[in-house]
Amino acid sequence: MSNQDSNTDIPCEQQTVKFYQTGTFTVGNRLLDEGCRTVQATAERANSLDSGHRACQGCGQALGARYALDAAMRATDNKIIAANATGCLEVFTTPYPETAWSIPWVHSLFGNVAAVASGIAASLKAKGDTTTRVIAQGGDGGTTDIGFGCLSGMFDRNDDVLYICYDNGGYMNTGVQRSSATPPAARTATTMPVGDNPGSSFTTGKFLPAIAMAHEIPYVATASVHDLHDLERKVEKAMTFRGARYIQINVPCPLGWGSQPALTIKLSRMGVECGLVPLFEAENGKLTDSTKIRYRIPVEDYLKLQRRFAHVLKPQNTHQLDAIRQIAEDNIKRYNLV
């Protein structure tokens, strides 16, 4: 992070700043020195994903992508090529002949974005270009399900690609069907709240950050769109590594979650504060840091703002609520969240 405009001589990463103002959850960018402020505060921001696209109101993915890409641009002196899986982000940014991308951008297929990005990286390597960097991005379906083979291959070869998964817990572009990243009990179009076990199953699912860690790639992180400063920091940090890197960003989806568009930031924060969305970093397969929960909240406070979990809060489904509470407990222990 640049410290050029700093009012003090203390490097940004060492400045102890109370981000959260008393009594609110507001992340206070203005409490930082100018040079340490988040990228959206500067007029020089790249606007990699520009305005005028067709995302829904309150789309967490549009927000996450905009900040992630601009942070990567800042970290690489605007030398980013992005590849995109089929999905919401691809569709809402590039209805022919319009494009919201001001960076070189390619979309090929749903299940191959990691491999396409590997191909771009291979091309740069062949040409001896060490300054241009590659980002692959996709939703959770394109990442944990149909694109999983290509992603694992990219990790295995340690290709110089940062893969960003925007995780909204389902196939929202296709009409809200279950993916292997859909949370247990969540209502989707293929896991309706009917029968004895309403909503999505309590099977293991695929928590991709842990699978990425098992590949022992240089850097893995999770982030969420309520804390954009943390998201940007992780993206910029990822760009300091060579090889395969993976960042999964929790992106609320008003359409798929059945939530108010105005609550996207709040839900992003609540997911983290209840323990269901652990934020952490790992290097070479080992956990290096995790974001502590500041004000722990009950999971039901988070669930009740989302129609996809409405059935969980009914008296006959307390077994589901208990199981979800247990998942939060397990996350807190596993990722050291308190």
Binding site: N112, A115, V116, G119, I120, A121, L124, C150
Partner: peptide, 18 residues
């Protein structure tokens, strides 16, 4: 690479990158 699907997909990325 890990599959033919990846193989052609890498070709796509590399060719698009020139």
């Amino acid at each position: 690479v890990e599959s033919e699907f990846a193989s052609m997909s890498l070709c796509i990325g590399a060719s698009a990158a020139g």
